[in-house]
């Protein structure tokens, strides 16, 4: 095959495809909305007197019981192996494995869906652009639609884009099982046991803690601007006010850093946070880890040798 192949389809096919994608996207959004609504109505205040690390409280599954260090190694390793694949088919397989992980971890699907939607803009760009801009190689299959003949859709581009979308979704699906099955401090502690400097681990936790404080501050300031009639427009005035707003946010946060540091020192901070020891390793931890890494390797082999990429 040294020539590109071409084929023409009626325009309606393209319109249908676009319509289908759009509908799927809206459906996902709608599901998320109703799911979160239903979740709130049946919401019960969690019993905070039980630690999250206690598996009975935070949920009980294979992933919850898995030692954090092993989980991190296994899922991160698996993620990199998934990213190393090339074909859309192996990406699809990886996505299915991701779905399986969410299922096995007994996590609500809504949160994973939110993650997928967060990436959708970026990924849509690939889906739209890649088929149009992929350079035609010998053996490529070019598709045109009647009426818009000047646009040549390269199927190889589409397959590249689909592979990207699949891989991105697969890794995104793994995020919830990886992170939501243990409290953040525990996960960070796992990271530090794996060699991330302790200081950096503590910085992650501190930053995470103060995001909520600053979000609240930013929200109150935005309301304060709103009640004095500030409306965001495309104008120099808006940008000036946004500049002040950012500046104020930074000033307040810098002032807070000093107060927080004082409070830490006042309670005897010597550069170390107490690190709770949560860990116990069992046979199953090794087994699960080996299992996931093996799956990843198999996937990669399947991708490289079977599909011949």
């Amino acid at each position: 095959m040294s020539e590109t192949q071409a084929m023409q389809l009626p325009l309606i096919y393209l319109l249908l495809a676009v319509f289908l994608c759009g509908t799927l996207w809206w459906l996902a959004l709608w599901t998320l909305k109703t799911a979160s609504h239903r979740h709130q109505e049946g919401q019960q205040e969690r019993d905070w007197s039980v630690p999250l690390i206690d598996s009975a409280a935070g949920g009980d599954s294979l992933f919850h019981r898995w030692d954090v260090r092993f989980k991190l190694v296994a899922l991160l390793g698996f993620a990199f192996l998934v990213v190393a694949t090339r074909s859309p088919w192996s990406a699809l397989l990886a996505m299915l494995l991701g779905l399986l992980a969410v299922r096995l971890a007994r996590l609500p699907f809504a949160r994973s869906l939110r993650r997928l939607l967060a990436m959708s803009g970026f990924l849509a760009m690939f889906l739209l652009i890649m088929p149009l801009t992929a350079v035609p190689h010998p053996g490529d299959f070019l598709l045109t639609f009647s009426g818009i003949d000047f646009l040549r859709f390269n199927l190889r581009g589409l397959s590249l884009a689909l592979a990207i979308v699949g891989k991105a979704c697969a890794v995104a699906l793994l995020m919830e099982p990886l992170l939501a099955t243990a409290s953040l401090p525990r996960t960070v502690e796992g990271l530090t046991r794996l060699g991330v400097p302790e200081k950096v681990g503590q910085m992650i936790l501190l930053a995470h803690r103060y995001i909520f404080v600053f979000l609240e501050e930013a929200r109150r300031m935005a309301t304060g601007m709103q009640v004095r009639g500030f409306q965001r427009r495309t104008s120099m005035q808006t940008l000036r006010v946004m500049g002040n707003y950012l500046g104020m946010l930074f000033v307040r946060s810098f002032e807070r850093t000093h107060r927080v540091y004082d409070a830490m020192q006042a309670r005897g901070y010597q550069g170390r946070f107490p690190a709770p020891a949560y860990f116990s390793v069992g046979k199953s931890d090794w087994l699960h880890t080996a299992c996931w890494l093996l799956l990843g390797l198999l996937l990669l082999c399947f991708d490289r040798f079977w599909l011949g990429n």
């Binding site: 200081k199 503590q202 910085m203 103060y210 995001i211 979000l215 495309t234 808006t238 707003y245 000093h258």
Partner: peptide, 24 residues
């Protein structure tokens, strides 16, 4: 070394400011 906690707290404010949308 003693500034690392401060950098962490400030990071939170950068995080928040990167969520701010400017109309265009």
């Amino acid at each position: 070394n003693e500034d690392l906690p401060k950098v962490a707290v400030v990071t939170a404010s950068f995080f928040v400011s990167s969520l701010i949308h400017v109309p265009l």
